[in-house]
């Protein structure tokens, strides 16, 4: 079996000395879609921030394996992950600059993202602050994909989106995951839709990991009990 890409062991983390998540163990394997679910305040976003390196650990470890580097991990944050005063193209520019991608490769990456999410072409030169929730989410995912990441972490991409729009957004991402071997960690409140595209599920409750398995193992009764 291929080496785990991200291994979380005994992780405690939080804010201002107060632990929000405690004793978390989680592994992210190559080419899988892992769905992390749980109520608001369960600590899902805190865990993602630690895994991405935005929040320091209080205890425990987050280890990148299989040759994975931080540059190969992209995060789509909760909410509108775009800078509203910049145009969509400028948001992309900034993402490419931050990833130190230069020359012809820049245009090639943008073309590739516009191939995956072609709707972005229509508003590429609009100010991101004028976009709808769905359009902004698409740009946020597009910006993350510009890194050509091996691991894509998405924090509640369905927030503010109609179910149909969310399905339209997940479709190309799932296709990309299967075609390119992308690994996805998806945090979602829209459990039904998220489980349809996931290979594994992990459930968090009150800052702790309470269950993990495959979507087929997670019966409705079990889900109600855990959630």
């Amino acid at each position: 079996m291929a080496e785990t890409l991200i291994e979380v062991q005994g992780l405690h983390a939080g804010y201002k000395g107060h632990a929000v998540i405690e004793d978390i163990d989680l592994s992210l394997n190559p080419n899988e879609v892992l769905c992390l679910i749980g109520h608001n305040g369960a600590g899902k976003s805190t865990l993602l921030k630690c895994m991405f390196g935005l929040l320091p650990r209080m205890q425990g470890n987050v280890r990148y394996g299989g040759g994975l580097t931080h540059e190969q991990v992209a995060l789509v944050p909760e909410g509108k992950g775009v800078f509203p005063s910049l145009t969509v193209a400028e948001n992309f520019d900034l993402g490419l600059d931050a990833a130190k991608i230069k020359g012809a490769e820049r245009a090639a990456r943008v073309d590739w993202v516009l191939g995956v999410l072609p709707q972005i072409r229509e508003f590429l030169h609009r100010r991101a602050g004028t976009l709808s929730g769905g359009q902004a989410q698409m740009v946020s995912i597009g910006r993350a994909l510009l890194k050509r990441p091996r691991v894509l972490i998405m924090d509640e991409p369905s927030i503010g989106l109609a179910p149909k729009l969310f399905q339209d957004l997940l479709g190309p991402i799932r296709a990309l995951q299967q075609a390119e071997g992308l690994t996805i960690l998806l945090v979602e409140q829209n459990v039904r839709e998220a489980l349809k595209v996931s290979d594994r599920v992990a459930v968090m409750k009150q800052g702790r990991m309470v269950w993990h398995g495959t979507p087929s193992e997670l019966s409705n009764d079990r889900l109600m009990e855990l959630y």
Partner: peptide, 12 residues
């Protein structure tokens, strides 16, 4: 100026 937290997410 827009969002200091997002700046770090972008890798800046």
């Amino acid at each position: 100026s827009d969002d200091p937290e997002l700046v770090r997410v972008f890798g800046l």
